[in-house]
Design a protein around this nucleic acid. Sequence first.
DNA 1: TATTTTCGTGCAAACGATTGCATTAGTGTG
DNA 2: CACACTAATGCAATCGTTTGCACGAAAATA
Lengths: 343, 343
Amino acid sequence: MQVTIKDVAREANVAPSTVSRVIANSPRISQKTKERVRQAMEDLGYYPNVHARSLANRTTQAIGLVMPSAATKTLQNPFFSEVIRGISTKAHQNGYSLYMTTGVSEEEVYEGVVSMVQGRRVDGVVVLYSRTDDKVVQFLQESKFPFVVVGKPFSDSTQVTYVDTDNYLAGREVTKYLHQLGHECIAFVGGSQDLAVTQERVGGYKTALMEERLPVEDNYIVSAPFMTTGGADAVKRLMSLKHPPTAVVVSDDMMALGVMSTLNEMGISVPDEMAVVSFNNLFIAEFSSPPLTSVEINIFGLGFEATNCLIEQINEDATPYGKRVIVPHHLVVRQSCGGPQKP
Amino acid sequence: MQVTIKDVAREANVAPSTVSRVIANSPRISQKTKERVRQAMEDLGYYPNVHARSLANRTTQAIGLVMPSAATKTLQNPFFSEVIRGISTKAHQNGYSLYMTTGVSEEEVYEGVVSMVQGRRVDGVVVLYSRTDDKVVQFLQESKFPFVVVGKPFSDSTQVTYVDTDNYLAGREVTKYLHQLGHECIAFVGGSQDLAVTQERVGGYKTALMEERLPVEDNYIVSAPFMTTGGADAVKRLMSLKHPPTAVVVSDDMMALGVMSTLNEMGISVPDEMAVVSFNNLFIAEFSSPPLTSVEINIFGLGFEATNCLIEQINEDATPYGKRVIVPHHLVVRQSCGGPQKP
DNA sequence: TATTTTCGTGCAAACGATTGCATTAGTGTG
DNA sequence: CACACTAATGCAATCGTTTGCACGAAAATA
């Protein structure tokens, strides 16, 4: 049987309410009593029942995580481990714990979120993806429930709080970087077109080309659902053009691995015959052959900041306003682009 | 304000207890009433308050996840995403959701587990690592709380339920495989020695050498804390021996990446001058250059099976006995060992 | 028809905390 | 010494469910 607050009360010769106030460290309880009660809690090995507490309290000290549906293998991307690490760190610092639902289909994920919110299982929610026209975000908004999106939400971005990288800028920067290295034929390989992140990065890429007075060719922009082909098709398509590119911007390290692997198979050397630059700077970037030049976007920080915003939102009972946090990024130069690094 | 069971009861003209029984789909309620109540729930958008339910119920429909402390960067290994995917899938199928605590230090992790268990926040726990002399496992065992370990726990492995790969066998098999390909000088590069998995794999490696009448040389066995050096030191040490090996068994794909990257830097070609075989068959194995020959250990399955065992344990109220599940593995041959694949 | 079963439902007591209000004891003031 | 006031604690209602038991009506049995 569990040790309850009543047992502690009896042991310390006080009323349950007093014990409760000791737990909350209320100034209305004398120091002496506090110590006696604390001793009793210690002796009996008392731990408050979280459910009773939540019920009385109307608060859960838990944060819900919404992951993309397990169907999309997106989850395998180490991005998620890292962002969760960030979330978890901040959450832990503030005494929150984490609660996850996943589902196989989108519908299941949605149902999970609804019952998490309506069932009052969590105090707030972090949404770990951003898709066009997302039911989950819409639901959270209508419920006026505290939530934060990691990545840029499509609709109503002015109304929802989100934490993101400036992907547009990053896309522009890496493209210019390649141009500075002397490349004139620069291609872009991205993931699914309906992800905000892809659109932003390709947008930056195009802008950079225009600013540098290079032609923007549709043939040079390919998108590939990563997990199925690893970008092999994309590479083959690019290399079969009359003027194949000499450099390529890849929108994710994982995909860059696939691209380099395909290039390797085709006997095309990186960086000598093809420069590759990508995003996220996952730790695999460091250990690939050759090591990848990649944009460090501080994934941990994204998670951490998101949680920070969420906790703020939970604490102020003001209506959530659309706050926007941009986490800075920077290019980490390794060997996949040649250039200064490899004289 | 939340819609409660009373509101539904009023709407449907029944008592709250009847509504509760409808939710539980009790056979004691007539079909007609059930429908009326369900309609009312629908109309009002009723969702049961999970805390009230857990309180009355003494059950939470949640499973706790214990991760290694965030300090060790182990978390970055995609292994975890994948095992969680497995856990989450099975959990979801049975109506359980997931609950995570992490902590920076081991002590924090331990405290997290204690309050999760004592606070009755979860019905059972999956432990995602196995270390020598672990407080967490000891605590769970003493509390007689349902739990399962993924990987082999050191102490008392007969008493605790765990799900694991036969790492000993796998280590033996890959070593023999390399020998079959003609290698006589085979080295082993592993992670931290106090992880069960390393010990098992190296054990299998040694046995295989002995069975094949090859010498077991201590110089050929190196272990390296992965995340710091990526196994670079290990490789350098091996290559500076008077008789450097011609093949190496690496105890993890991530580390194998690091090893191959270092070999690449040193101008040693894989697989022509050095064969590399590793374990886990993470999806990056497929996209590395050259693609890695690796042992598929079905990480998803480990998580799935573990959860399966846990749920069994939760449901039978018998004292948890030490059940042991071994998930089968098999070698996936790609190009990092040369051989049949590359004529 | 009287009596027992069965069936469907309601009553009220848990579950283990929190919290507004009442109560008591102790202190200072006129 | 009576009174007001403060400080410390207790009482009891509340949070939203579940569930053992009681109860009345209908069906089955004698």
